[in-house]
Design a protein around this nucleic acid. Structure first.
Length: 208
DNA sequence: AGGACGATTAACT
DNA sequence: GTTAATCGTCCTC
């Protein structure tokens, strides 16, 4: 059995399933909250029309084109922040979106940050909810997740890929919907629900 | 310079 | 099931 050659050129696709079970620790604002990841998505830069980095570097996506192990935080829908782990080597814009997890430390702080959550398993259920639990926003963009000095750190990664991992299409995107680049732990109650992205309508062009 | 759209969420019916 | 909220980014003119 040989390895699919394309996979070797897609670091986020390799890393994403391995991140399930990893713990992200945040000390933003002097409050310690830790989340164990149960759901992630791979975004493959220039090879992936759904990636923010698809059309090349911009001010927003600069961090994605930098070295691996840093946090890429972006603002969306005029009100939410979401977070990724950059995983491509310097110059390659691959990243893993942190879609959901369970709060394993600092539940009280997470509940203050997420007053709408009805159950603890809802606290980090969804990418903006997860970022909110950890106190992540623009100030954390570019933070080195592998430095003990950082306020946000990747503190543990499973030595082996989890034996039971589910995969399927990514959530909320309108392009490249056929790629099963979303990965989750099938029995985790914190996994978010699938929703298709908004359909792209053909823009009305002025008649000639 | 203008406008469409978004890697979403919460609150509705 | 539907929809409002809300604004930075990026494409188009």
């Amino acid at each position: 059995m040989t390895v699919d050659r394309g996979r070797l050129a897609r670091p986020a696709l390799v890393l994403a399933p391995r991140m399930l079970g990893a713990v992200i620790v945040s000390e933003v604002g002097g409050e310690r909250v830790a989340v164990r990841l149960t759901e992630v998505e791979a975004y493959e830069g220039s090879a992936d029309p759904a990636s923010h980095a698809y059309r090349g570097p911009t001010a927003r996506t600069e961090v994605m084109f930098g070295p691996p192990g840093h946090l890429y935080c972006y603002f969306t829908y005029g009100m939410h922040w979401c977070a990724n782990v950059v995983c491509g080597v310097d110059g390659v814009a691959s990243a893993v979106l942190l879609r959901a997890g369970e709060v394993v430390e600092g539940v009280a702080v997470a509940r203050e940050r997420r007053p709408a959550a009805r159950r603890d398993t809802d606290l980090a259920r969804g990418p903006a909810r997860l970022a909110s639990c950890l106190g992540l926003s623009g100030g954390e963009n570019g933070v080195d997740l592998c430095s003990p000095e950082s306020t946000v750190r990747l503190e543990s990664m499973p030595a082996r890929r989890r034996p039971e991992i589910a995969s399927g299409p990514r959530v909320g995107i309108a392009v490249a919907t056929d790629r099963p680049w979303r990965f989750w732990l099938p029995d985790a109650p914190s996994v978010s629900v699938f929703k298709a992205g908004g359909r792209r309508r053909p823009r009305p062009r002025p008649a000639d």
